[in-house]
Design a protein around this nucleic acid. Structure first.
Lengths: 221, 221
DNA sequence: GTCTATAATCGGATAGAC
DNA sequence: GTCTATCCGATTATAGAC
């Protein structure tokens, strides 16, 4: 595993939509599942090929090495992550901005739990592939959102706090529904949360966190 | 990996403190690190033996199979988890009980991040080893604490909510500092959080969550 | 109890036929 | 472009000397 080479080509050439793309996508989908379950080292190309329904050698034709395949999967995760991150910016009102961001992250945990698991697994092994991303794009994004939250604090809209620990809280709370979905399912009587239950969890999370950080009118002091 | 056999002997025989215990502990400590980083499948007995400073065959003398070693490590994690879980019960006041529990979980994330990572990794791969624990001990613990929180809601001490999503929020927020410590370190300028910063994170988390769920006096409505 | 040597298997990757 | 056959290193586990 080469360390910290910058990721390239987030959207790899859509000019030829379905010539080799079909099988590549088949492989990427299978790889996403296997990497999410077993991590980079635990995943095997045999297992990925098996789940994709192709011979192992065919997989190595499209993705020469296991690491190249892993990096391709990881790029997709980062792309999705950055899309959700922008939902922070659509509103100047802290309540609406935070609610939108928490909601977007919850929706991502619901629709793409595998991406969240791959992220978690990558971080837990020391982030060799996304290390550069952590120190550049993510650090920049975090700093700018800290500044926004700090401005809300200065205006008295948010209670005084360290903004970054609020961000960590949001990340943790939302990604938990993806990373630990097996545990949540087990504690739900072996049935995954249905849409109604998930909506309840999402609404309650937004309510609790907004109550926790929004400054109410100080008329009663 | 045999599925869902109940875990046995949480405290394996302390009558002979240091005859073979010394090397077993050496192996368990090394195994905890390697399993935390690489997961069950990604970890190798060679790597564990290397870090324990013993020949690989010697490891297999003390722990016949990789799975037996993994189960031993997992038992230690469960034991520690149950110890922290009891901190919920020491107090009848919701603010104090929740603060004590959140604080205990944060302290665990600080002192034993590896255990948290092993838990996360085990859940993400489908929990084959702790599945039984999830459906028995953990489900029972969750139900009893839900009942306690519900009683607080009935007394008007806590705002109306689904108690279990509050528990999930506490689990997620606290374990995040263990499971994602590499990311937090990267975003902290490549330096781990020092004790002061961690205390700030812990205090702020307690403050935010208590504000989010405690019912304030309704004198201003 | 401990370690060297090795068996048996698995996994990543490739050669070369089709 | 696709797949069968295979190489070779890595990995789990054991046999047997000390």
């Amino acid at each position: 595993m080469t360390p910290a080479t910058p990721l390239e080509s987030p959207l790899p050439d859509r000019s030829k939509p379905t010539i080799r793309s079909a099988k590549e996508q088949l492989i990427l989908d299978a790889a996403e599942k296997v990497f999410a379950e077993l991590g980079f080292k635990g995943a095997t190309t045999s297992e990925i090929a098996l789940r994709a329904g192709i011979p192992k050698a065919n997989l190595h034709y499209y993705f020469p090495t296991k690491e190249a395949l892993y990096r391709a999967v990881t790029e997709n995760v980062l792309t999705a992550w950055l899309a959700a991150a922008s939902s922070f910016d659509v509103n100047d009102d802290p309540a609406e901005a935070l609610a939108a961001y928490i909601g977007a992250k919850m929706d991502m945990a619901r629709t793409d739990p595998l991406g969240s698991k791959i992220w978690a697994s990558e971080i837990m092994r020391g982030a060799p592939v996304i290390e550069d991303f952590l120190h550049t794009t993510l650090a920049t994004w975090l700093a700018s959102r800290e500044a926004i939250i700090q401005s809300w604090i200065n205006k008295g809209l948010i209670v005084p706090m360290q903004p970054r620990y609020l961000i960590y809280l949001i990340w943790a709370a939302t990604q938990h529904y993806a990373d630990f979905d097996h545990q949540i399912t087990a504690l739900n009587g072996s049935a995954p949360l249905d849409d109604a239950a998930f909506t309840t969890a999402k609404t309650q999370l937004i309510t609790t966190l907004l109550r926790g950080v929004l400054n109410v009118a100080k008329s009663d002091t």
